[in-house]
């Protein structure tokens, strides 16, 4: 991530970026040493081609989900419905693209509006009805997939629409178009969060909801907004997923991806208890998870045991991320040194 705008530190205050970055660098170093051709890059048909490019492209879905998830978690919530929302946006786009004459400029906003509304519905359940976020979003996690199946009639809908295929497979400036998409979303979100009061509101709600309500922050609107935003991110990820395979696979797309997104956010230094958050950290966390997955595949780790090394890396980074754990370890070493 060579985004120059990412430099100013105060934009990404919150958890430290050091640990997820360290994890990512360590993993890449391993790949450099042990996986033949992992870093091989070549130019084909005017764009970069190689494993690293795949990681960026495949990881884009988790990165987008993680952006939305970061803000939701920052308000002390969690959004389990993102995988199903991906299925819904993919299903909508596939059906509209194959069965109507509408242009993509119409279809994409329709799909994103739908997932934004469903996200806001989560927000209403959480803020107005006062349902626990994990339960409130579970409703759409289960029901949303049913909605997606209804839209596609339970079938895998394939399409060849050039514009739609471009989103997940096309190249822009020599890199997959999805990289641009993620960068733009990261930039817009960062600007909103760090250059306006929005970020403050989000952190305030996550830190102490009652106190922020008494200080005049409309906690309901903040929650509606973050869940709606998470819906938009999930919608975008759904577009990419569908575009990637030129098909809407309603029953399988996005399955378990909500967990990947939550991992990415936690690894990236955002506290699950709410309050502080770190957008760039979540992006790095998502990259870490994708790099891990790709490493497992290229290294020939038997699929049945692949989750184990994956879990070990995630636990290691989470432990490093924990201040308490670091203090404990530091304390031990300190004592031993003085003894």
């Amino acid at each position: 991530m060579n985004d120059p705008m990412a430099k100013p530190k105060e934009w990404f205050q919150g958890g430290s970026l050091v640990w997820p970055l360290l994890g990512l660098v360590a993993l890449l170093a391993y790949d450099f040493l042990f996986v033949d051709g992992f870093f091989r890059l070549e130019v084909r048909d005017g764009h970069l081609y190689g494993t690293l490019v795949d990681i960026l492209n495949q990881g884009s879905k988790t990165m987008l989900l993680a952006l939305g998830m970061t803000l939701v978690i920052a308000t002390g919530g969690v959004d389990l419905s993102v995988g199903s929302l991906m299925a819904i946006s993919g299903a909508l786009v596939a059906v509209l693209v194959t069965q109507t004459e509408m242009s993509l400029a119409m279809i994409v906003p329709i799909a994103l509006a739908a997932t934004a509304l469903l996200g806001a519905f989560n927000g209403v359940l959480v803020s107005v009805a006062g349902i626990q976020p994990i339960v409130a979003t579970l409703i759409l996690m289960v029901g949303g997939r049913g909605i997606a199946m209804l839209i596609t009639g339970g079938q895998i809908v394939t399409f060849e629409h050039a514009g739609m295929v471009y989103i997940g497979n096309g190249h822009f400036l020599g890199l997959p178009f999805t990289v641009t998409l993620v960068l733009v979303m990261l930039l817009v979100t960062s600007l909103l969060m760090r250059k306006t009061a929005c970020g403050l509101f989000v952190e305030a709600v996550g830190d102490n909801e009652t106190a922020s309500r008494f200080s005049g922050v409309s906690t309901r609107s903040v929650k509606l907004a973050v869940y709606g935003f998470s819906g938009i991110c999930a919608g975008l990820a759904g577009l990419i997923a569908a575009s990637n395979i030129k098909a809407a696979d309603s029953s399988r797309v996005g399955e378990m991806m909500e967990l990947d997104a939550i991992f990415a956010v936690v690894v990236g230094g955002t506290a699950l208890t709410g309050g502080r958050f770190n957008l760039l950290g979540s992006i790095i966390g998502a990259l870490l998870i994708q790099t891990l997955t790709t490493t497992m595949i290229t290294q020939g780790v038997p699929p049945a045991i692949a989750p184990v090394p994956k879990a070990i890396v995630i636990v290691a980074v989470c432990l490093l991320q924990s201040e308490k754990f670091r203090a404990e370890i530091g304390g031990r070493f300190g004592r031993r040194a003085s003894a």
Binding site: V35, D36, G37, F38, R40, G50, T51, D54, Q58, I156, A241, N244, I245, A247, D249, R252, V253, E255, T293, T294, I297, T298
Partner: peptide, 17 residues
């Protein structure tokens, strides 16, 4: 994982190696 996306991701990665 019996998925279209899974088949694509794995093949993509393995063809590179």
């Amino acid at each position: 994982d019996f998925r279209r996306s899974g088949g694509k991701e794995v093949t993509e990665a393995l063809l590179k190696v």
